[in-house]
Design a protein around this nucleic acid. Structure first.
Lengths: 211, 211
DNA sequence: TAGATTGTTAATCGATTAACAATC
DNA sequence: TAGATTGTTAATCGATTAACAATC
């Protein structure tokens, strides 16, 4: 046996399936869905969907399909999305501000996603002490302290590229193990810490090749 | 011979190598870099870097390495990044506004990237007619017309999920072949049209699994 | 039962890595 | 030349797809 753990790419698709299921329920009243129908909505093959689910268990009934509500709950559980994840955002510049407003509105009242933006950080004295939609902006020098006292589990990094590695180091030192970075640089972190990159420049550059 | 065209994933890494090279030149005065050194900075293996480059030609010298300036130009050319790509942004809500400000500042004066945000679109009469950092906001009903008259080649979609498919359809009908979507839905487009998804929710969901 | 669809095995496909001859 | 590093081939690894027995 070579691989006991589901590959990274499977996890990503599971999140996609979950969202697809959640969109479904609001518009559709069927209780059951086939792997074919669900996979089509998610944009993958039916075989791939079934294989991905098989990493976590057997959730369907032969000849019938998957109960939508049950499958939704099973995936949420498999992905740990039933937890509660206080999130911090570092860098309240133009992009950071917008991401904050966006994610606050999107996730605060939607129980489907357990991310709560509870703190922002910046080094601009004019911003420190203020709030955005009720979320306080702290001085970035308080980062380590607030990570601990507020129990932050995820940080979103939207500082300039030159500052990103220092910020990442500080987060890791304070115990953060999951980061989403909008800074266009590779961040070096210890094993066990996950970084996802959201990189507009890379996306645009990639698109151009095919024009 | 099975594959004549470089895979998608290779293109993405080439963009990454290019950026890595551009960051290099501002800080480092060496004229030459080895595949080992460059690949390390980019976060890939030296073998992979050399194999990726081999899709486009032979740019190095055995025993020496790659001339930084030359390699930079070769990659820019291979990726069509020497062109000029007028870009439109649809949906001037909170996220759209921020993306606009961010990308205007980042790309307008940086000759390294040939993206220019030249138009925004919204359906809010209060916004239509205004400008953001000099970029006009048009009524979304003028979308098709402006795509043609302004020669837009890339659109960034930051409208609500429910509206995204309609917008994508309109763009495709007007001749757009490259889109970057921030809406959390799968967009169905004809073959030959590329869509990239920038999806905060998927990224965050994915991160949580490993906590 | 008969039809439908799952869960899973085996085959295929593609991407990464290791190794090294070519050569600057 | 001798040392270093590329370009490339062959081997490995992992992911996707096809096919089908199990079974609701």
């Amino acid at each position: 046996m070579r691989t006991q753990k589901p590959p990274d790419i499977v996890i990503r698709r599971l999140v996609l399936y979950l969202r697809t299921l959640e969109n479904l329920e609001t518009t559709d009243k069927e209780e059951v869905i086939s792997s074919y129908a669900l996979s089509h909505l998610a944009g993958v093959s039916a075989t791939q969907l079934r294989k991905d689910l098989a990493w976590f268990g057997e959730f369907g009934k032969q000849g019938v399909g998957y109960n939508i509500e049950t499958l939704r709950e099973e995936i949420r559980e498999a992905l740990n999305l039933d937890g509660n994840y206080p999130t911090g955002l570092i860098g309240a510049g133009g992009l950071g501000m917008a991401l904050a407003r966006y994610s606050i509105r999107r996730y605060r009242d939607e129980s489907a996603y357990p991310f709560q933006l509870v703190a922002m950080f910046d080094n601009d004295p004019a911003k420190v002490g203020g709030t955005i939609d009720g979320v306080p902006i702290f001085d970035v020098r308080e980062l380590a302290e607030k990570i601990q006292t507020l129990g932050l589990q995820i940080v979103i990094i939207s500082v300039p590229a030159a500052a990103a590695q220092d910020i990442a180091n500080a987060c890791v030192a304070a115990g953060i193990r999951a980061m989403l970075s909008f800074a266009p640089v590779k961040l070096t972190v210890p094993a066990g810490v996950r970084v996802h990159y959201a990189d507009l420049g890379l996306d645009l550059g990639h698109l151009v090749y095919y024009l």
